[in-house]
C-alpha cells in the first residue's frame, strides 16, 4: 500500500478520533457568517440602493 491517504501509518491515533467535535471551528465560522450577512446587508441596501442614478430600465 503506497499512498498515504489509504495507509494507516505510525501516527494513526486510533478510535477516539471519532469523538472529535470541532467546536472552535464552529464558533469561528459562526462569527464569519454573521460578518458576511451584516456586510452584505450594508453594501446592498445602504451603499448600493442609496446611490444616485439607480438604473430602472
Amino acid at each position: 500500500m503506497g499512498q498515504n491517504e489509504t495507509a494507516h501509518g505510525v501516527d494513526d491515533v486510533g478510535g477516539d478520533d471519532a469523538e472529535f467535535d470541532p467546536i472552535g471551528t464552529l464558533t469561528l465560522i459562526g462569527i464569519y457568517f454573521a460578518i458576511l450577512v451584516l456586510s452584505w446587508v450594508y453594501i446592498y441596501y445602504i451603499e448600493f440602493l442609496g446611490r444616485d442614478l439607480v438604473v430602472v430600465g
Binding site: 472529535f20 472552535g24 471551528t25 469561528l28 465560522i29
Partner: peptide, 25 residues
C-alpha cells in the same frame, strides 16, 4: 472548505494540547 480546513487545523491544535473554545489557536 473553510469549515473542513479550519476543523483539520483545530484537530492539530488539540493534538498539540490546545484547549478552550478558541484558546487552541
Amino acid at each position: 472548505t473553510a469549515f473542513t480546513v479550519v476543523a483539520s487545523v483545530e484537530y492539530g491544535a488539540r493534538q498539540r494540547g490546545g484547549t478552550g473554545l478558541l484558546g487552541w489557536l
